[in-house]
């Protein structure tokens, strides 16, 4: 037994030494970086006029590197499909929410939806955008799920699936449409870019919010047969 403990201690010491070396190496790598890098920032600022939005981060996310964001929406969908295909959790016990949680969630959820809409709208010209708005919507969904609310039968089937693929679907449709009318994939014409980005962001917001809440629930909402 003491032998085992000693090996454990020796192993731990070795690990700490090794990780200290890695930490030192990484810190050196960070410190050795030049203080005036030739980043992509200047290029983004130069082409910001053609992107249709005024916020450089939104311009990068939805326009210049829109392909990344498209694939990222696909990752979200695949993760949710993975969670659903694992069949959820068998013993999902629920307790009725306390009066504070119940009342507070009723008060907070409308405010959260309003905040999400604001973040989505303001994302064109200031910090904000689809991901932030989607996260706020997802938080509202988690709050509702925690206070015992579940999707009704009418919404748990086709409508929920439609919302979950809306973001990715609209992205792909917009990209392919632009490709077919003569541009490149996801290359927005500057005159249409602002509107297209807002449309795609609105769809992405709803999808991100719904996906995050669905990931939190873990189980696929079951459509109960009508009584």
């Amino acid at each position: 037994m003491t032998d085992n403990q000693q090996t454990g201690k020796a192993f731990r010491l070795l690990l700490v030494l090794l990780l200290s070396a890695i930490a030192g190496w990484l810190a050196y790598a960070v410190l050795a970086l030049s203080s005036s890098p030739a980043g992509l920032g200047e290029q983004v600022v130069t082409h910001l006029d053609t992107s249709g939005v005024g916020n450089p981060v939104t311009a990068v996310l939805l326009n210049f590197r829109g392909y990344d964001t498209l694939l990222e929406m696909a990752v979200l969908l695949v993760a949710l499909l993975g969670v659903w295909s694992l069949g959820g959790i068998a013993d999902y016990r629920e307790s009725p929410p306390g009066p504070v949680l119940d009342t507070l969630s009723r008060l907070l959820v409308p405010v959260l939806i309003l905040v999400a809409a604001y973040l989505l709208w303001v994302g064109a010209d200031a910090p904000g955008g689809a991901f932030q708005a989607g996260s706020v919507l997802g938080a509202a969904g988690v709050l509702l799920l925690l206070s015992g609310w579940r999707l009704g039968n009418r919404f748990a089937g086709l409508l929920l699936r439609a919302v979950l693929v809306l973001g990715l679907g609209l992205f792909v449709i917009a990209g392919t449409g632009l490709f077919l009318i003569g541009g490149a994939f996801l290359e927005y014409p500057p005159s249409l870019a602002g509107g297209l980005i807002l449309l795609i962001e609105a769809a992405a917001t709803m999808t991100i919010g719904a996906t995050l809440a669905a990931l939190f629930l873990g189980n696929r909402p079951r459509v109960e047969p009508d009584k």
Binding site: S36, P56, V60, R65, V75, A79, L80, V83, G218
Partner: peptide, 30 residues
């Protein structure tokens, strides 16, 4: 960069990364 605004490309990558990390965590938890 000393006097330029922050580079937006890493910021966009982080926003994307956070959402991917959340979904990967959910899958790992299940």
């Amino acid at each position: 960069h000393q006097d330029a605004p922050p580079d937006p490309v890493p910021h966009a990558m982080v926003i994307t990364g956070i959402v991917v990390a959340v979904s990967a965590t959910a899958l790992a938890l299940i």
